[in-house]
Structures are given as structure tokens and as C-alpha cells.
């Protein structure tokens, strides 16, 4: 599904290397988690994969089903099935949540050469999906993320994921700012989307989220590289001992 080879990235505005040769292969239907200390490059990896400006790729490739993502505009990546659940979802005053979602769904369909979804079908679908995430009609009507609590914003990200049905979902610290109940709700939303044709990359600081969204593979990222990969037990090790041991291991 997603294959990253020796990906090297620096900031566009300053001469600062962030990713220093990331290698990562995520097969269809699997859930991978990335953990790592602050500043290790986890969020940068998610932004580079989704096409955010401000980064310069100096080497390596990132392909989704064999297509080099790095050559594509963000909207083309999205239409191919790439989705990033933002750590800080953006507020867009003046654009209704429903309008936003419908525009997104139909923009992707159009790019893929599919028919647009009718207003009626869209409404039926979004009502059903919103219900399972406990998103009420008012949240759908309000401007995108404006005045939403932290938990509401993250639930709204998962709703977008559910509506867009991407192949490759990256969750960037989706657990940050969530209370226990909200985390459970968000995790259930993610788990409901688990499918043999869909993969997840979960970026997190805490093992807690991985209790709910059980990963197949856990990677530890530090200083712009993945320094260790293993099973779910790796996350427990980090939770108990911190990163110090792992870092000294590779040093």
C-alpha cells in the first residue's frame, strides 16, 4: 500500500534537515503506529505525505500503490485515497461543515471520474455516520470546526475519514486533547473503518490510544529516522521505560 524509501526532507525556509532517510512499508489492511520523542519528525512525515507546503524533499520516494505521492498536489493525493487526520484541525469560518464535506466527497469523485453523490444520498450517509460518532445535526450545520471543543474537532476528523473512505489513513496525534470517553469514541470510529483494503498509520505519544486501536507493527522514530520496529509490546516498553534505553541502543 504505502512504501517509503530513504525519504529525506528539510524545511524550505531554513537549512534544517528533519527526515534523514525514513524507510517504511505498510501493507494493505494493517495498522502501524509511530511513537517517538518530540521533534523526531513524526508530524513532518505526515505533512510531507499529505502534501503540505514548506518542506523540501531532498531524496527518496513515497509511493501509494506504486504511484509517487511526492509528484502530486494535495488534492490528487486525497483523490487517490490518502487521508490525514490533523493534530490541530483547522477552523474555517463561513463554510458549513456539511457543505465542506459534500464538496470534498464530490471533488474526489470527480477527480476519479465517478458520478457526484446526490444531495439525498449524501444526507442519508452523513446522518448515519454522524450518529455513530455522536455528532449532532447542529455540529454538521456549524462552520467547519469553529467553536468546536477539542473532542468535537477530532470526532469531526473521523467523520471526514468515514465519509471519504480513504485507503491510507494517517492519524497525527489524534489522542491529544481527548478525555477518556472521547478517546474511546474516536477509537471506535477508527476501528469501525478497519478493513482489509485500508491501512492506518497512527502517530501517538501514548500507549493508551494503542489499547483501543490495536496496531500490528510499532515503529520508534528518533532524529528523523525509524530506529526500531516491533510488535505492540514495543509501545508498552516505551510507556514503561521512556525512550532513553532505545535511543542509547542505537547510539
Amino acid at each position: 500500500m504505502l512504501n517509503i524509501k530513504d525519504l529525506r526532507v528539510e524545511l524550505e525556509d531554513e537549512d534544517k534537515k528533519i527526515l534523514k532517510g525514513v524507510n517504511l512499508d505498510i501493507e494493505a489492511g494493517s495498522v502501524h503506529a509511530i511513537m517517538g520523542p518530540n521533534g523526531s519528525g513524526k508530524s513532518t512525515l505526515s505533512y510531507v505525505l499529505s502534501g503540505r507546503a514548506g518542506y523540501r524533499v531532498t531524496g527518496g520516494t513515497a509511493t501509494l500503490d506504486g504511484v509517487n505521492l511526492l509528484d502530486l498536489d494535495p488534492e490528487e493525493r486525497a483523490a487517490m485515497g490518502m487521508f490525514l487526520a490533523f493534530q490541530y484541525p483547522v477552523e474555517i469560518p463561513g463554510v458549513g461543515n456539511m457543505t465542506f464535506l459534500r464538496t470534498a466527497v464530490n471533488s474526489q469523485r470527480k477527480q476519479r471520474g465517478e458520478d457526484e453523490m446526490s444531495a439525498g444520498d449524501f444526507l442519508k450517509l452523513i446522518r448515519a455516520k454522524a450518529k455513530t460518532l455522536k455528532i449532532d445535526a447542529d455540529m454538521l450545520k456549524r462552520p467547519v470546526n469553529v467553536g468546536f471543543s477539542g473532542g468535537e474537532k477530532k470526532r469531526n476528523e473521523i467523520l471526514q475519514m468515514a465519509m471519504l473512505e480513504p485507503k491510507m489513513c494517517i492519524l497525527d496525534e489524534t489522542d491529544s486533547g481527548l478525555d477518556v470517553d472521547a478517546m474511546k469514541l474516536v477509537s471506535e470510529g477508527v476501528n469501525a473503518l478497519r478493513d482489509k483494503g485500508r491501512s492506518f498509520l497512527v502517530i501517538t505519544h501514548y500507549q493508551r490510544l494503542l489499547d483501543h486501536i490495536k496496531p500490528d507493527v510499532v515503529h520508534i522514530m528518533a532524529n528523523g529516522r525509524i530506529i526500531k520496529s516491533g510488535g505492540p509490546e514495543l509501545a508498552i516498553e516505551v510507556e514503561n521505560n521512556g525512550y532513553a534505553d532505545l535511543l542509547s541502543e542505537v547510539a
Binding site: E75, F86, P89, I92, A104, S107, Q108, Q160
Partner: peptide
């Protein structure tokens, strides 16, 4: 630019995304 990227990351091409933000 943040809002523009958010829209594009959801599949809305840059032209329509700019229009949507302009109308907003």
C-alpha cells in the same frame, strides 16, 4: 493558507477551494 491546505487535503482542488474560502 492553513485553511486552503485543509480543503485540498480533503480532495478539493485549489481553484474551488479558493472560491469556497472567498465566499466564506
Amino acid at each position: 493558507e492553513e485553511a486552503l491546505f485543509y480543503l485540498r487535503s480533503r480532495g478539493v482542488p485549489v481553484g474551488p477551494a479558493t472560491d469556497l474560502l472567498t465566499l466564506a
